[in-house]
Amino acid sequence: MRNPLLKALIRKPLTEAGPADGDLAELGRTLERETRSRLGRSLAIRQVDAGSCNACELEIQATANPCYDLDRFGLHFVASPRHADILLVTGPVTRNMEVALRRTYDAMPNPKWVVAAGDCAIDGGALPAAMRCLTAAMRLSP
């Protein structure tokens, strides 16, 4: 216990600085401005795996590790859809996840947004719409 804690006290923080300029920084500023004016607080995200290969989840989990520390940008993951502004969908939306995804979406308060993460959720990716997969955005948009 002592050793890593002590080390953490004396060495530089592991967390890296966010992008200072370029498109990503611009995007960050826009996002901050928009969420501040529309919500007046940080963004809450509920992630749902709708049939991904689990690499998407691992990468989303990794955004919370000390190197990236997503929370400091005002984006945090919540457990309940009732607390969420954004539904983050990964995977091609399998038929078996359709109902669960729809119910999660319905449980979220307005205003709400859906964000598709990864090729699978965006356009079916490498695991295409061939069998029973439909793209997330298509299914959920009214």
Binding site: D49, G51, T94, N96, M97, A130, M131, R132
Partner: peptide, 9 residues
Amino acid sequence: YTHKGIDRL
């Protein structure tokens, strides 16, 4: 729940 039909694909 994550059945994508990979065998079939």
